[in-house]
């Protein structure tokens, strides 16, 4: 599904990623573990097209996506839920979700009617909207509300819902549980498992490494821009070094 092959990325003068390779197979939840500044977010930014590669290749379903512009990745079936959610705060919940389906309308620049068309009449948009409302009933209740006035958990649901509106094959999630109450975190992680079971591939960054490993199929540990450990989630949960470094608190 997604293959990152020896990419090097610099943030300014600092090398954030050094010849890093990861692979995400179809139908997997893969998680990146590591302390702040290890390069996890840079990895997602690079895949989504927000960071320039100095070397290496990124393949999405056998298509090379090096140097792709961010707005093009959505059309290729890749959705990005960044840290901080980046929803459109001054727009309504429904408008945020509908924009998630923008790539269907914009993919054909000359089909002006589809582009400017009244969105509620577009059956694809409508059926995805219903799907998101089934997953997150609270978003349906508040669909007219301003997105910026939702609670943190609801905003996170909205960000994930907006990503789902594009019918993605793979979702990149950067710290979806940041700042959320523990029961909400559990709910969101449970949802990710459900999405995986529905056939969506997931690449997840999560501060709470033990929680992430519990739902993940495979995992990579990152340190200072490199992958130091990789393996199945179970392997990592039982790896002494990983337990000490990243799971210490949650095991005790």
């Amino acid at each position: 599904m997604l293959k990152v092959d020896k990419i090097t990325v610099a943030n300014g003068r600092v090398i954030a990623l050094r010849e890093v390779s990861i692979q995400v197979n179809e139908g997997e939840i893969v998680t990146l573990i590591g302390s702040n500044g290890a390069g996890k977010s840079t990895m997602l930014n690079a895949i989504a097209g927000f960071a320039t590669l100095q070397s290496g290749n990124i393949w999405l379903r056998d298509q090379n996506i090096n140097g792709i512009t961010p707005y093009q990745t959505v059309g290729l079936g890749l959705a990005y839920v960044p840290e901080g959610r980046e929803i459109f705060g001054s727009m309504s919940v429904a408008d945020n979700l509908i924009l998630g389906a923008y790539s269907w309308c914009a993919g054909k620049p000359f089909s002006t009617l589809g582009y400017i068309g009244w969105f509620l009449r577009q059956p694809l948009v409508q059926s995805n909207l219903e799907m998101v409302f089934r997953l997150f009933p609270v978003l349906k209740e508040r669909h007219k509300q301003q997105a910026g006035k939702l609670s943190g958990g609801e905003q996170q649901m909205l960000a994930i819902g907006r990503a789902l509106m594009s019918s993605p094959k793979i979702i990149l999630l950067d710290e979806p549980s940041l700042g959320l109450a523990p029961n909400l975190v559990r709910e969101i992680l449970k949802l990710l498992v459900k999405l995986r079971d529905d056939g969506i591939t997931i690449l997840l960054i999560e501060q709470d490494a033990s929680a992430a490993l519990k739902i993940a199929d495979r995992a990579y540990v990152m340190e200072r821009g490199r992958i130091t450990v990789e393996g199945t989630a179970d392997d990592l949960l039982n790896d002494d070094k990983v337990r000490q470094a990243y799971l210490g608190k949650s095991i005790a």
């Binding site: 959505v74 990005y80 907006r162 594009s166």
Partner: peptide, 13 residues
């Protein structure tokens, strides 16, 4: 509102 967030849903600024 944000060209970055707009790019995430596929909007070419």
């Amino acid at each position: 509102i944000s060209t970055r967030a707009a790019a995430m849903v596929g909007i070419d600024s």
